[in-house]
């Protein structure tokens, strides 16, 4: 597995962080699921601490020295939502991803209401969890001034104009919104579900290639014939905007 070149074909799991080590607290009572998640995060830049019940999870998280918490909804001792509420009451703002085995979509609403930052329903693809963890760890790039730039692609937030290498690109409002989301998260894997949730605010699964078609349209507009593509497909995961360094 490791022989595979990560830049060409990133495997499930978060990317390595060059700088600070990211400390992940995993609160999960199912050992098998925990092992899978620990394995996915066993790469440079991450330290995973695993605890198996609510009270211990709350105690560890209460220290506040984690960058992110991945927490199961159902935990022995104290359930995930109670841990989450207690943390938020103690004004500990560590980002939390709630995992739930329940199919209930209400669970998501409850999880977010209790102070969760994101929600994944089991069973999930590891790439989905990894991408969401990454999205929470990296704050989206704030626009410097009134524009965002990735490589030679530039997006003007005030004039709502997009240009690549000086060439003006006409985008529909929905395409502008999609590109905006990508440009604030360069080099991050964005899954189809994340795009549907965050760009369009929809939370349904569709059998059609809805997101792919929208991305296809956007690609056609931002990549001229002689230009290298910027939005890459990440197999089995989603999409990634990569700056083309000269």
């Amino acid at each position: 597995m490791t022989s595979l070149s990560e830049s060409e074909n990133p495997r499930p799991g978060p990317p390595a962080f060059a700088g600070d080590r990211m400390r992940v607290l995993l609160v999960e009572d199912d050992q098998e699921t925990a092992d899978e998640i620990i394995a996915a995060f066993s790469r440079p830049g991450y330290t995973v601490v695993h605890v198996g019940d609510g009270p211990t999870g709350l105690a560890r998280a209460g220290g506040g020295d984690f960058d992110i918490i991945i927490m199961d909804r159902m935990l022995p001792g104290l359930d995930g939502l109670s841990v989450l509420s207690a943390l938020r009451q103690a004004e500990i703002a560590t980002p939390v991803i709630v995992m739930s085995a329940l199919g209930d979509v209400d669970e998501r609403v409850r999880g977010l209401k209790a102070g969760g930052d994101d929600y994944v329903a089991k069973p999930f693809a590891m790439v989905e969890l990894a991408a969401r963890v990454e999205a929470l760890l990296r704050r989206p790039a704030l626009a410097r001034g009134t524009s965002v730039q990735v490589g030679d692609l530039k997006l003007d937030l005030i004039a709502r104009k997009v240009s690549r290498a000086g060439r003006e690109i006409e985008l529909l409002p929905r395409e502008f919104k999609l590109l905006d989301y990508f440009m604030r998260r360069p080099g991050q894997v964005l899954t189809r579900a994340m795009l549907l949730e965050n760009v369009w605010n929809y939370r349904f699964f569709t059998e059609t290639n809805l997101v792919d078609v929208h991305i296809g349209k956007l690609r056609k507009k931002i990549d001229a014939i002689d230009e290298p593509p910027m939005i890459h497909s990440v197999r089995g995961a989603g999409f990634m905007l990569i700056a083309n360094e000269e």
């Binding site: 209930d104 979509v105 209400d106 609403v109 929905r174 369009w200 929809y202 059609t208 290639n209 809805l210 078609v213 929208h214 296809g216 349209k217």
Partner: peptide, 26 residues
């Protein structure tokens, strides 16, 4: 049928218009 908690006032035309826009490229 346990989901009525999440009910809110919506505009059917607005919802439909947004989805039509989403599906238009497809």
């Amino acid at each position: 049928g346990q989901r009525r908690a999440a009910f809110e006032e919506l505009d059917l035309a607005e919802l439909a218009r947004e989805l039509v826009e989403l599906y238009d490229p497809i």
